[in-house]
Design a protein around this nucleic acid. Structure first.
Lengths: 133, 133
DNA sequence: TTAAGTGCAAATCGTTTGCAGTTCG
DNA sequence: CGAACTGCAAACGATTTGCACTTAA
């Protein structure tokens, strides 16, 4: 286990800036492309490494898209929550749900599973994307 | 769109047999390894192609593991449902949840998202695996 | 100075595909 | 016979890593 993300570097700032500017979940590749297009000099590997570090520190949320790629977003809430994600643009809404939490806990208890975690994400097409097609 | 899985072949039978024998979600690679170990002559590509076909026909369930790999299982219920999956052995329990369905529908409506789908899986370690460590 | 960070290219890993040779119906 | 199917190896796309070089502290 290395100590990562302890320094302030140009590229790290750029990546954070990009994350803040995004209004939804983006893949590492999308973020990198955006950075390059914008003129920022950051390598793809660095984007991956940085995102990894940010996730480890809990500063960024990851979720697996329906196709299996990891998507990242800087979330407002630092506690556990779920998302409603637009399949088309990645725009997302943070959700906290007592129902889901209770459901997961109840099921786990019932079947005597330990070390339980759960994922619950809703995918769809947001209003803006629906009308722009 | 091709017509796939219309024939009865030796390898298809082996794969189905393997799926029936499994008591939880398995990756394509795990299934393939098991088949080879058992002496069945099936190529990895065939396993992937067959699983794909089975999923398309709704005879098999897929879900993305926490690490992003696809895991397959022959499910009893043919309608939409969720799972409680053991991280250690893959053993799983099928769940149907009115709460989750209602929650997803309510959230989608509220934010005016269309074409909505959702995933909700619970991961943990089953009793048997917990005690065998 | 020196551990942390970076770019690049090569390496992984899961999965898909092109193709030539089988096989089911 | 002809469309499905198969194996194999090459192709892929996302992510990781080895390495030599740079830089923050």
């Amino acid at each position: 286990v290395k100590t990562r993300g302890s320094r302030r570097t140009e590229q790290r700032e750029e990546i954070l800036r990009q994350l803040d500017g995004a209004d939804g979940f983006k893949t590492a590749q999308q973020l990198h492309r955006a950075l390059v297009d914008r003129g920022a000099e950051v390598g793809l590997a660095t984007v991956y490494r940085t995102l990894q570090a940010l996730v480890a520190r809990g500063e960024v949320d990851v979720l697996a898209s329906e196709t299996g790629e990891s998507m990242y977003r800087r979330c407002a809430t630092d506690s556990h929550h779920h998302h409603l994600v637009c399949r088309s643009c990645g725009r997302s809404v943070e959700l906290s749900s007592v129902e889901v939490e209770r459901w997961a806990a109840r099921i786990a208890r019932k079947h005597r599973f330990s070390g339980v975690s759960h994922v619950a994400e809703i995918f769809g097409v947001c209003e803006r994307c629906t009308s722009s097609v």
